[in-house]
């Protein structure tokens, strides 16, 4: 099969999956796209938004559209790590002998919905760390691989912060994207009312299987990237660090810590998926610009001044990207800029 065909197949599958999700979810096309981009990049996605915007429904619908196992964990303050990972329990066999048997937790699924992840204690939140990074969990000294593809979708509520445990930076860094689910427009709201208050239920068709997802992930990694574009990605990430010599003024003023190398990886991987969706065989600077905010907004830690002035992370990332492009062409001759 030629690569043209494979890419075309991916684009078709991607569009199909997005259409299935859009059967249920009204609006939020960009959010759906970014969730799928995150999934095909091999990362995990954090959805942030006020209650009732359809975050959980989006994930459930996505799981229905994929022929993959799905589990949902409602995070609460009394949730323990064993409740997620699983534990060894004593079982009795036919001969009456007792032995330990590992009882899998809900993490052993292809798609895991960690609902309201910031309501659980840091100890429980960190139970997801190994699974998200290594795609395996260790219980009783035994490492157990998680099924592939493994995809965690977490949701959190930015308001009602009382009794919550904000995700630590290490945990946040594990999410390839952080997506902000906005409130729907009035037309979208009307459509939501139409769809959800009628007796007819929308059936979601399974359009993709696990092996297909894994194959697409492999395909995505083959997308080439030019040195100049790669340089732009690394410059964007470097420009988030106030200590960098070429850091823009906005970074020096408002940022305490910049994005990690995982941020650059997320940016490039996401850009590769976007390139294929756009029907391209290469990553462009536009891809980086489009995915800079979801990939970096949760990786930039504002300083006191930034927090005091309520600096919007997305605006900040936009300014950093512009500054990075200026840095890239800074040394070049005027004709070549």
């Amino acid at each position: 099969m030629s690569y043209d065909t494979r890419v075309q197949e991916f684009v078709t599958a991607f569009e199909g999956l997005r259409s299935e999700v859009e059967k249920v979810i009204v609006g939020h096309r960009e959010i759906i796209t970014h969730v799928l981009v995150g999934m095909f990049s091999g990362g995990h996605v954090l959805l942030e938004g006020v209650p009732g915007l359809g975050k959980t429904l989006l994930v459930k619908t996505l799981a229905e559209g994929l022929d993959l196992s799905f589990s949902r964990v409602q995070f609460t303050p009394d949730l323990m790590p064993a409740d997620i990972i699983g534990t060894n329990i004593i079982v009795e066999d036919a001969d009456g002998r007792k032995h330990f048997q590992f009882q899998q937790g809900p993490i052993f699924a292809h798609i895991v919905l960690a609902d309201e992840i910031n309501r659980a204690t840091p100890k429980t939140q960190s139970a997801l760390l190994e699974g998200m990074q290594e795609a395996s969990v260790t219980v009783g000294g035994v490492s157990r691989a998680l099924p592939g593809p493994f995809f965690v979708l977490a949701t959190q509520n930015p308001i009602e912060m009382e009794g919550t445990y904000p995700l630590p930076e290490a945990q946040l860094d594990r999410f390839i994207f952080k997506l902000r689910v906005r409130f729907p427009a009035i037309e979208e709201l009307n459509q939501i009312i139409e769809r959800t208050t009628q007796p007819r239920q929308v059936a979601v068709t399974r359009v993709m299987t696990g092996p297909q997802v894994l194959a697409f992930r492999e395909l995505i990694r083959e997308v080439p990237i030019a040195t100049t574009v790669r340089d732009l990605a690394s410059t964007i990430v470097m420009a988030t660090h106030p200590q960098w010599e070429h850091a823009p003024e906005v970074t020096r003023r408002f940022v305490r810590y910049g994005a990690s190398p995982r941020g650059a990886q997320a940016l490039v991987l996401g850009a590769k998926v976007r390139a294929l969706i756009e029907g391209r065989f290469n990553v462009s600077a536009d891809d980086l610009r489009a995915l800079a905010a979801p990939a970096l907004r949760h990786r930039i830690i504002l300083n006191f001044e930034g927090e005091a002035e309520a600096v919007d992370a997305d605006t900040l990332v936009g300014q950093i990207v512009d500054a990075a492009e200026t840095v890239i062409v800074q040394g070049k001759e005027a004709f070549l800029r």
């Binding site: 990237i225 065989f281 290469n282 990553v283 600077a285 536009d286």
Partner: peptide, 8 residues
Amino acid sequence: LSDRVTTA
């Protein structure tokens, strides 16, 4: 050309 020529 979305960096096609450069990458190519």
